[in-house]
Computed example of a mutant assay.
Amino acid sequence: MTASQCRLACVANDRCIGFTYMKRKSQCWLKGAVSAPRYGEGMISGLKKMTTFAPTSIISLEMKFSTSVAERPGGARSI
């Protein structure tokens, strides 16, 4: 198991809120509760934080062009 797989295992588990991966043993510990972070040599820990967002406003992506259009030589038009 890798650290990335450990993280994904936490994401897939509804009860998991964090994880610790031990490099030396290739072990993954899924956490249902977490405390203050502390350093552990060879360990990678993380939190599962699922967030969503809602736009504050919806904008139009339509481009507005000027009504004055000039003819270019050769029939091409520019705006």
Score class of each variant (00 low, 15 high):
Lys49Ala: 13
Tyr21Leu: 00
Thr2Met: 07
Glu71Leu: 08
Ala33Cys: 05
Lys23Asp: 10
Thr2Ser: 15
Ala12Asn: 15
Asp14Arg: 12
Ser60His: 09
Gln27Leu: 13
Leu8Tyr: 06
Phe19Leu: 03
Arg77Glu: 02
Met63Ile: 15
Ala76Trp: 01
Gly46Phe: 01
Pro55Leu: 11
Thr67Ile: 01
Thr2Cys: 04
Glu62Gln: 11
Gln27Met: 11
Ala76Ile: 02
Arg72Leu: 13
Gln5Asn: 14
Thr51Trp: 05
Ser68Trp: 03
Cys16Pro: 02
Ser60Asn: 13
Cys28Thr: 10
Glu41Thr: 12
Arg7Met: 08
Pro37Phe: 03
Pro37Ala: 11
Thr2Phe: 03
Ser68Lys: 09
Met22Lys: 04
Phe19Asn: 00
Lys49Phe: 01
Thr51Leu: 13
Ser57Lys: 14
Arg77Phe: 07
Ala3Leu: 06
Arg77Asn: 09
Ala12Lys: 12
Arg7Tyr: 07
Ser57Tyr: 11
Tyr39Asp: 02
Tyr39Glu: 06
Arg24Pro: 03
Gly42Asn: 12
Met22Pro: 00
Glu71Trp: 01
Cys6Leu: 05
Thr56Glu: 11
Thr51Gly: 06
Met1Ala: 12
Ser78Met: 03
Lys23Cys: 00
Thr2Glu: 08
Ser60Trp: 02
Gly75Ser: 05
Pro55Lys: 00
Ala9Phe: 01
Glu62Leu: 11
Arg24Ile: 10
Val34His: 09
Leu8Trp: 00
Gly75Ala: 07
Gly74Trp: 05
Phe19Gly: 00
Ser57Asp: 11
Ser78Val: 12
Ile79Pro: 02
Ser45Val: 01
Ser35Pro: 01
Ser57Gly: 01
Gly75Leu: 08
Ser26Arg: 14
Ile44Phe: 03
Lys49Gln: 09
Thr52Phe: 12
Lys23Pro: 01
Leu8Thr: 09
Met63Glu: 15
Pro37Tyr: 04
Ser66Asn: 14
Gly32Cys: 00
Met22Thr: 07
Ser4Leu: 08
Leu47Ile: 09
Met43Lys: 08
Ser35Gln: 13
Thr52Ala: 12
Thr56Ile: 15
Leu47Cys: 04
Leu8Met: 13
Ala12Gln: 15
Trp29Thr: 05
Ala9His: 01
Thr52Pro: 00
Glu71Thr: 07
Ser78Glu: 04
Cys10Thr: 06
Pro73Thr: 03
Pro73His: 09
Arg7Cys: 02
Phe65Trp: 07
Lys48Cys: 04
Ser78His: 06
Met43Glu: 11
Ala70Met: 05
Ala76His: 05
Arg24Met: 05
Ser60Phe: 00
Arg38Ala: 09
Tyr21His: 07
Arg72Ser: 03
Met63Ser: 14
Met63Pro: 06
Met63Leu: 14
Gln27Lys: 14
Tyr39Pro: 02
Gly18Ala: 15
Ile17Gly: 03
Phe65Asn: 12
Leu8Glu: 14
Thr67His: 10
Gln27Asp: 15
Lys25Ser: 15
Lys49Ser: 12
